[in-house]
Amino acid sequence: MGIRTLVVVGLSAWAGWLLVRGILLRTVPWIGLGLIAVPLVVLGVTERQWVDAEHRFSAVARALAPGTDGVHCQRLGETFTYAGAELGHVDWDEDGVPTGPAMVSYETCGRLAAYRNSSGTERSDPPLDQVIAVHVLTHEAMHLAGRLREADAECAAMQRDAWVAQQLGATAAEGQALAETYWREVYPRMPDAYTDDACTADGDLDETPGDGQWP
């Protein structure tokens, strides 16, 4: 249970106690209830928006990896107890089967939401952190689909980034531009475990060789 949920539960319990106390004392503490209601509504709306975004990202991931649990967007409270530094990860059992949803970091989910809600110049020329966030979603979906080796998941993801961007509201041209930006500006700087010389146009990891389109 995330911190936001715990706060909502705590505030709700406090409001209930004030109401019961008011009934017993035959006076309703309107000021106290009002002070609780405002943050309770704000937190509830924020959590609802976060859950809606998580469901949307999960639908995209499951389209690429049918039968899996999709995506879990890390909540702010989870960042304080999470020891890893990855933007996303998938846990597997000893047979290489995902044991749950792909975890996507709090910051990455926020950037995915920002990309999904963007328009105009920001959509056609998104900040690099949003480009990376879209790719993280695709990359983790490739892990969910059974590509355990990082270089395989990375290369397969680059060939699907344009499609994922379109599922988040981009046009075909905007999606292709995003995929090309990742290929040019991010992929060359990735650690060796994430790269492969065969990940190039008409290379062994090109899933549609000869089509003249890369990534």
Rank of each mutant, 00 (worst) to 15 (best):
Q167T: 11
D125I: 06
V136M: 08
G120S: 04
L112S: 07
L128P: 14
D129S: 05
S119K: 10
T171R: 04
E150T: 07
R184C: 02
W92T: 12
L144S: 05
R184D: 10
L137V: 08
V104A: 09
Q166M: 14
R123I: 05
C155Y: 05
A179N: 05
A114Y: 02
T171S: 15
Q166W: 00
P101A: 13
L144A: 02
H135Y: 12
Y115T: 03
A102N: 02
P127G: 11
D95P: 07
A177M: 10
E150C: 09
W183M: 13
E94I: 03
L148I: 11
A179S: 12
S124I: 12
D95N: 14
G169Q: 11
S124R: 12
P101W: 04
G96K: 03
E86W: 14
H89N: 13
R184Q: 12
D161R: 08
E140V: 13
A177F: 11
A114W: 03
V136H: 09
H139Q: 12
D91K: 14
G146R: 01
A165I: 07
G110M: 09
Q130D: 11
G100Q: 02
S118T: 02
T181A: 15
E154F: 06
D91Y: 07
E94V: 08
Q167N: 14
T138V: 14
V104M: 13
E180V: 15
Y182P: 13
A177N: 11
S119D: 10
H89M: 13
A141I: 04
R147D: 03
A157S: 08
A165G: 01
P126V: 04
H135L: 10
H139P: 03
A170N: 03
S118E: 05
